[in-house]
Design a protein around this nucleic acid. Structure first.
Length: 128
DNA sequence: AACGTGACGAGGA
DNA sequence: ATCCTCGCCACGT
């Protein structure tokens, strides 16, 4: 799980790129989805190293509290808040309600995506 | 090589 | 809710 090559970063970048518009994710969440448990700080670094040409939806990544993780004095802070507003993600009192806007890949796919037709997998997973 | 530093997070006081 | 302490781990000194 050690991050020591560009491929590791690309893995994280790819996960970030998958966050749909109107949704947000926490650093820790991206880490887990990308396969790096407890890799929140690594995600932060990957984001900092991300080439701008990649055009990643960096603004959809917030900390676990739903707050923007960069200093409020930073110009990027306002830019991030602006982008969130553009996507109709309420940024109130300096934070996003993660309980409502957090990206939930599995659930999204079950409800909105193609997997909605594959309900058979639900009944088969009798592991409870 | 040792040490301090984060676009982090969880838990305790 | 706020502040502090730790765990985390690649980086730059």
């Amino acid at each position: 799980m050690a991050v020591n090559s560009k491929q590791d970063y690309q893995r994280i970048w790819h996960t970030i790129a998958a966050i749909p518009s109107g949704r947000v994710a926490s650093y820790g969440q991206i880490g887990e989805l990308a396969g790096y448990a407890r890799g929140a700080r690594l995600v932060a670094r990957a984001l900092r190293y991300a080439p701008v040409e990649m055009n990643l939806p960096w603004h959809r990544v917030l900390n676990a509290q739903g707050k923007i993780a960069i200093p409020a004095s930073s110009p990027s802070y306002k830019e991030q808040a602006r982008r969130l507003a553009t996507e109709d993600v309420p940024f109130i009192s300096g934070r996003v309600d993660m309980s409502r806007y957090r990206w939930q890949p599995d659930l999204d796919e079950l409800i909105w995506g193609p997997l909605a037709f594959d309900t058979g997998t639900l009944t088969e997973g009798s592991d409870e």
